[in-house]
């Protein structure tokens, strides 16, 4: 691993300022993907800004929504009583992801920021437009049974591997993003990008911005819901396809429904508006 500077700012503001100062700096929280990428030599930030201890791990109800801090651990969110009661679909999706050890390390913000698991992205001896723009896509003619079904381009057919994101897209979550000037909110389904001609850009986070939290509106999807994940083994594998489904039944009539698909594209495919 190429060495780097390490700083651990005491406040969120100091962390955002630190990101601005060094163009190749990156935030690190759980590190479950970033350390992996650094060992492979796929990314080599000159400076790591440790944000894991920032006070951004609160899970609370605020009016008619639940706010989850970006630094909340995947395992903490999955087992949180409020989440299990009000957003059981999210809890189920989180439990379907990774392993218990990784869920104890990975944060909500980090889960969103993880890179694809396309094997060609990790193989630095082969071309990959996501890793090295303009070099070509090895997956197009390669072993691609786990690649995109929707939204792919002739530049990249990689998928985003998250389970958590599928549930959040289904549940109309909003991403709370901060920079040095203030906060903005982005619908969750607009956070990740389709590859188009710039597959190296995974999401719509601008330079100098930090994910500080997620807001999920309260809903009636607490009884009839299911996160289903099809994969090569029963646990600890990425999805070939996953589906987050939730329905609200009133007097034997489906009054509201949500469907979202994961493992099929670089962003979650949600049908909330149709």
């Amino acid at each position: 691993m190429i060495t780097f500077d390490y700083i651990r700012p005491a406040t969120t503001k100091a962390a955002i300022d630190a990101l601005k100062k060094e163009s190749s700096a990156q935030f690190i929280a759980g590190g479950t993907n970033l350390v992996d990428l650094m060992k492979h030599g796929i990314t080599a930030p000159q400076r790591l800004i440790d944000i894991s201890r920032l006070p951004l791990n609160i899970i609370e109800q605020k009016g008619n929504m639940i706010r989850i801090g970006a630094m909340a651990l995947n395992s903490t969110v999955a087992e949180n009583a409020l989440i299990q009661q009000q957003l059981p679909l999210l809890s189920q999706a989180l439990q379907a992801g990774a392993s218990p050890q990784l869920r104890n390390m990975a944060t909500v913000g980090g889960n969103m920021m993880q890179r694809t698991r396309c094997a060609y992205f990790y193989d630095t001896t082969l071309p990959c437009n996501k890793r090295e723009p303009g070099s070509g896509c090895s997956a197009l003619q390669g072993y691609n049974r786990m690649h995109a079904i929707f939204g792919a381009s002739d530049q990249c057919i990689a998928v985003h591997p998250s389970d958590m994101c599928v549930a959040l897209a289904a549940l109309d979550a909003v991403v709370v993003i901060a920079d040095s000037k203030g906060e903005r909110r982005l619908p969750f389904i607009d956070f990740h990008r389709l590859p188009g001609n710039s597959p190296h850009v995974d999401n719509n986070l601008a330079k100098g911005e930090m994910i500080v939290g997620i807001e999920v509106p309260l809903n009636n999807f607490v009884k009839h819901y299911r996160y289903t994940k099809i994969r090569d083994r029963q646990s600890y594998a990425f999805a070939l396809v996953s589906v987050a489904a939730a329905i609200d039944i009133k007097e034997n009539i489906i009054s509201d429904i949500r469907l979202a698909m994961g493992g099929v594209g670089s962003q979650t495919v949600a049908t909330n508006k149709s």
Binding site: F4, R8, P9, T11, A14, A18, Q46
Partner: peptide, 9 residues
């Protein structure tokens, strides 16, 4: 004093 910890590479 903004950083709790700083280490050069």
């Amino acid at each position: 004093g903004l950083d709790e910890k700083a280490a050069g590479y």
